[in-house]
Structures are given as structure tokens and as C-alpha cells.
Amino acid sequence: MKRFTLNPVVIALLLAAGLFALGGVIRPGFANYTLALNILRLAAFLAIVAAGQTLVVISGGEGIDLSVGAVVTLGAILVFRIANGSNALLLPALALALLVGALIGAINGVGITLLRVPPLVMTLGMTGVVGGLILVITQGRLVGAPAPALNALVSRPLVFGIPGVVLLWLVLGGLMWVLLERTVYGKQLFAIGMNRTTARLSGVRVPLVVIATYALSSMLAALGGVVLLGYTQNVFLNLGAPYTLPSIAAVVVGGTLIAGGMGSYWGTMAGALVLTILTSLLTALTLPESARQIIYGLTLLALLAVYGRERGLRQ
């Protein structure tokens, strides 16, 4: 065990810094304070959605949540419609969005544990269901308005020009650390991800932990949707979809084992930064969309291949 290994969180952070510096070299003016803040803000949206994904991947059992994108959209639409431009209604709308999110996730968890539907299939199916639900709620017309307070929270600089959403993200980071490292739930989550038989024989009620995990994942996705609404100021049916796969990529780039049982939210935060900087850099290079997508995909593949070598899968 004396082999020299770099902490995956450190690797991801170094990579983020390296990419940012590379951007500054290739495209002078890329690496400035304003743009850095903008990247942080964009990374925050991804990282909030990926927080729940981190829990799901750690829980093991081929854990993956493909429904986060749809739930992001649903969360945004609910607040857009219910708060309808009123700051007073913002909190009740937020509470409702989180509740609906938790409910959707709990249904995912019940399907996965009690009905033994594979997570991939269950959450993919749920994406369709939530999509239908959105059509029912909106009746095809996206009426409503963003609450001004929400916009202020996301965009207005609070300290040193740092927007509120970035501070919110840091608070979430602290809460996620407490959840994973200092609560019974966190300890049991790592245990079921590592070995479900051992966990069960040590008294862990595996299905309960799994259901709670998927509920948290959807709840955090709904929160991500609400925060995103503060940025976009508008909703559309495809709002959350682009976050689904990057949320998984951020988790894996952050060093969380795809097989479960090992990982951290710090890693996911760093992973979200890497992905966001990479996207911004590719955009700044003014390459055609096709080339951007190919480079983005290849970079991800290269990263994951290196990680596979570095950490190995279990045993």
C-alpha cells in the first residue's frame, strides 16, 4: 500500500488549473477574473445537479440517475409558474419543487429496490414520465415569470464580485461533506456501495438507504433547476437535458468509483470545474460545433482511460 498515488481530487483540480492556463496561452484574454467568475457560476449549476449523482454512483449496484435532466426542467418550471414573478411566493414554490423532486426520486428508489428494475432502465423510464408530467402541468404553454430575488441570488455579486450561486455551491459542498463523512447515512451509503451483503449482515437496511439516495438525487436536481432558472430567467422544455450526461462525467472525473463505495463530493466539484472550463475553452477557440463535440468527447474518454489505469476498479 506504499505505492505513490495522487488523490483524484488533486488530479482533477490540477487539470482544471492546467486547462484554464492553456486557455490563457492559446487565447489571450481567456484567463481573466470576470471569465473565471463566469466559469465558476456555470460550474456551480452542473455541480449542484451532480451532487445527487455523486450519492447515486457511490451507492453502487450499477447506480446511475438518468432522470436528473428532466427533474431540473421540472423544478425550474414549477417555480417559474407558481412564484410567477413574486418574491413572497418564491420559498413556498421552492419547497414544493424540492418535495416533488424527492417524491420522484423515491419512486426511482422503490422501483430499483423492491421491483428490482436496473437503475439505468428505471431512471431512463422516469425521464419519460417526468417529461409527460411537464406537458400536463404546462398544457403546452410556458406561462409564469422568474422571481427577481432568484435572479439577484444567482447573478448579483456578493463578495469580491463572486455571485451568490457560487457561495451557495460552497455551502452545499460543506453540507455534502457532513452528509458523506459525518452522518450514519453517509457511512451506510459507502458500505452499501462497497458490499451490499456485508452491509445487510451488519444491520444496514439496504433498500431504505437506496431509496433515500435516489430521493436526495432528484431533490438536488430540482434545486439545480431552480437555481438555473435564476440564470436563464426563462424556461423551456429542454432546459435540464444537457446536464444529465455531464453530471455523470463530473462524478467520474472527480474520482468517484463508478462501481460504487468510494468517492467524494470534493472530487465532483473539481470534475464539474474541469468539464466547464473545457467547454468554455472549446467555445473560445471558435471551432465548428462538430469539432467541439468530437474534442470534448475524446478528452473525456482520455481522462477516464487514465483514471481507470490510475485507480483500477475494485479488486
Binding site: M194, M262, R314
Partner: peptide, 9 residues
């Protein structure tokens, strides 16, 4: 290995 330990924890 299968029932008693969390190997990497």
C-alpha cells in the same frame, strides 16, 4: 471477502 468486509474502506 464476500460477506464480512468492506475491502477498500
Amino acid at each position: 471477502g464476500r460477506e464480512g468486509l468492506l475491502a477498500n474502506r
